[in-house]
Computed example of a mutant assay.
Amino acid sequence: MLAIRFDRFGGPEVLTPVDVPAPEPGPGDVLIAVEAAGVNFADVLQADGSYLDASLLPYVPGGEVVGRTPDGRRVLAKATGGYAEWALAKESALVEVPEELDAARALALLTQGLTAWHLLRSAARLRDGESVVVHSAAGGVGSLAVQLAREFGAGRVLAQASTPEKERLALELGADEAVRYPLERRADVILDAAGGALFAHALDSLADFGRLVTYGNASRTAFAALDPGRLGRLNAAVVGFWLRPTLARPGAFAEPLAELFDLTLRGRLRPVAGPSYPLTEARTAHADLLARRTTGKIVLRP
């Protein structure tokens, strides 16, 4: 089968098309014929060595797929080796996907959708009427967080994005305003995956009892040490969030995903489908993601 593999760490150039045997299912595994594989920033971090130990090389990335099981079910799955024509997933990690939901939108609801849902519900614990600032508001997580914040009762949803085009997309998705720092009014909740200067601006922009939720460091800038005394003076909190351990909690996976499917099929949530690349162009997909040339969910198609 065709797969994308890397045998050393580095940038997009390490991603190489190879011909390898299809994976062999073990106990509890299901072999999936891949319709589309999602591309995530975590895949970039795997390729550059931030997430993986060298002992795991060579490695086929790709943690999420839409595809068909041998018995004909169309499923969305947390998978291993998704950048390939065939991938493996645990039966317990499969969710059936309605035929009317295209692969890109379904994939957007898995990692990005669940991240946005838990950022607002589990980490920020958003309350009715509160103001929310979403960084990277046209990205995979941000575009969904803008919409879900409104759905979950936010009073005002403010979008921060890197270009006027991305700001316009966030406004189309329901943001009340596109903002730059410093903010005119302090915010109750700020969602940040960028780190660096944006994190520092956000921390200084929290209202009393505000929550700054950090869930990434796309700027690749070292975080400064947080002084608890400063948080006390701000009367605010910094909340860290990571999806992987969150999904191990009871009720944290299937139930939120079912809500996201329902909202999408009823037209209340619009997952943004980004560019679709042939599997052999995985290098280009990673390069475009790193250069912030994309919006919405990026997918690879075998």
Rank of each mutant, 00 (worst) to 15 (best):
A93D: 12
D192W: 10
L171C: 04
D128L: 02
A254D: 13
T246W: 06
P278H: 14
E24Q: 08
A252L: 00
E130G: 05
G139Y: 07
E151P: 07
R220Q: 13
V272H: 04
T221Q: 12
T221E: 15
A104E: 06
A273T: 15
P256A: 11
V95P: 02
V133M: 09
R125H: 10
G153P: 05
T294A: 02
L260D: 10
L57M: 15
T214R: 04
L169H: 13
E184A: 14
R301Y: 08
G26F: 12
A108F: 03
K90W: 07
G267P: 07
L15Y: 01
V213P: 04
T111V: 03
G196Y: 12
G82A: 06
G72N: 00
V14E: 04
P245W: 14
L279F: 09
V132D: 09
D227C: 05
E255P: 02
L300I: 13
A103W: 03
L183I: 05
T80M: 02
R150Y: 14
H201E: 06
I4K: 00
K90C: 02
L289I: 01
H118A: 11
A123M: 01
H201D: 05
R168G: 03
I32G: 00
E165W: 11
L231F: 09
L191G: 10
G274M: 03
D53M: 06
A197T: 13
T69F: 04
R266S: 05
L263Y: 13
A149K: 10
P250H: 02
F152C: 07
A207H: 14
P25F: 09
T115F: 06
P23T: 08
A37T: 08
M1W: 04
L226Y: 08
Q46L: 11
